[in-house]
């Protein structure tokens, strides 16, 4: 895909919508890669004991998946200057092969100075948003 150019993008442009499937195995892999071994992300018994419905995905994994919508669009991940999210609802990951599906949409919210665009992202799980205030600043060519 040809990288988007600042001159050619417009406020309101949509990024491609993507669905990401997250299984328990993905959470174990992410725990190892990130170093976040909080048992709420892999131990259902522990998660329920602390009042969660079941094992929940690392918020950081959801953030990373939503970030892929941006880096897939821009091509060079080094173009991402700033990326922030709030975690508003948990992504509960069942102990089965189907896992949880997170749908990510994004759009060009603002064109700023120095070829920087602000991307706003929406991530949904079971029809509800799981990220709030999810924005990335990206410098385009």
């Amino acid at each position: 895909m040809t990288p988007p150019r600042f001159a050619e993008v417009a406020e309101g442009d949509q990024l491609p919508t993507t669905e990401y499937r997250v299984t328990r195995a993905d959470l174990v892999r992410y725990a190892g890669a990130s170093g976040d071994f909080n048992p709420i992300h892999w131990n259902g018994r522990f998660a329920r004991e602390v009042g969660l419905p079941d094992v929940i995905a690392h918020g950081m994994l959801t953030m990373a998946l939503a970030g892929r919508a941006v880096t897939d669009w821009v091509g060079d991940p080094g173009a991402v200057l700033d990326y922030g999210v709030r975690f508003t609802r948990p992504v509960v990951v069942p102990d089965d092969e189907a896992g949880a599906v997170v749908e990510v949409t994004g759009k060009v919210a603002r064109k700023l100075e120095d070829n920087v665009v602000k991307i706003t992202l929406t991530a949904r799980f079971q029809g509800q948003t799981v990220l709030g205030g999810a924005n990335a600043l990206v410098r385009l060519a």
């Binding site: 709420i40 918020g59 991402v80 200057l81 999210v85």
Partner: peptide
């Protein structure tokens, strides 16, 4: 044991 992640931001 009661901790979850509320928000996160990276400025590169």
């Amino acid at each position: 044991s009661r901790v979850v992640h509320g928000d996160q931001r990276f400025t590169h």
